[in-house]
Amino acid sequence: MLTFTLRRLLLAIPTLLFISLIIFLLVDLAPGSPMSEIPLTVPPEVRQKMIAALGADQPVFVRYILWLRQFFWVEPAYLLDGWFGTDLAGDQQRILSWQSRSPVFTVIGQRIPQTLTVIGTAYLVGILIAVPIGIYSAYRQYSLFDQLGTFVAMIGFSVPTFFTGTLFIIIFAVWLGWFPTKYDTTLEVTDWASFIRQMQQMAMPVMVLGLANAAAISRYMRSSMLENMGQDYVRTARAKGMTERTVVLKHVLRNSMIPVVTVIALGIPSIFGGAIITENLFGVNGIGAALIGAIHASDLPMVQTLAFIFAVLIVGFNLIADILYGFLDPRIRYD
């Protein structure tokens, strides 16, 4: 198990380096670089100095290594300083946002809690809806419930979240007036009334994201359950005289959860991607909204960092899913 984990960990490093290179080069080679934005009235020698001061006259790979150093060395050092009061970072240059002139990671640190509250709840709600539906549709295969579930899941796959989101706003916020149209980030939960308001404003984004995920997860759950239902051990369990409840919820469910758990872990990065849309639609002030804001403001350091953070999330959760699978299913570890 240890070698399996180590091998996976080692494979993740070149993947991350490659992605960081792609993100770096994409932004670096793009035509709209800040160097081209220096006004023409600036004399050439001053322009040269400006470019040199920004370090933009260095060869590409030097700049790439320096960027990596900032990302993987300087910024974690600042993080540790902030936690333990040490002085690892000294006064090294941090990655600064061009919009706000403040360190990118400070901005991201402020934004992440919003994203995590909304997305985390949405994913949990999605799983809680999907698992029972998946179990029951598999148990009563081809029943009315199963057919309905298949149809609803197909709709859940096909209708994009931005459309369900707008529909929800029109129905629940504009017509019925149950929920506010926009998410109020400044709201602090202090008492019961503010808690209710927090729940109300979270309801729509959570439902939109949760339903989209529930569609996929319930289908995986169903097919995984179906695969196990026909196995010999199920017949044995029934032959021993166990109740249907024990057979389905204990024997079959446990084995069926193995692939579903990995699918759930694999889905986490893509839900962050989906959050970009939901956050913009409902005005949740999270990292997805930060990415769009930075893109519209051409804030390249912010965009680079956020894109790379999304990549780290994907690689990280793929790794977790792999290791989880190996942990849960001993047949997968080929060591």
Binding site: V27, P31, G32, G273, I295, A307
Partner: peptide, 15 residues
């Protein structure tokens, strides 16, 4: 393992 939506957005914005 590329973050597709962010990358697409960046590509469109830059080019």
């Amino acid at each position: 393992s590329l973050p597709l939506i962010p990358l697409l957005l960046v590509m469109v914005m830059l080019f």
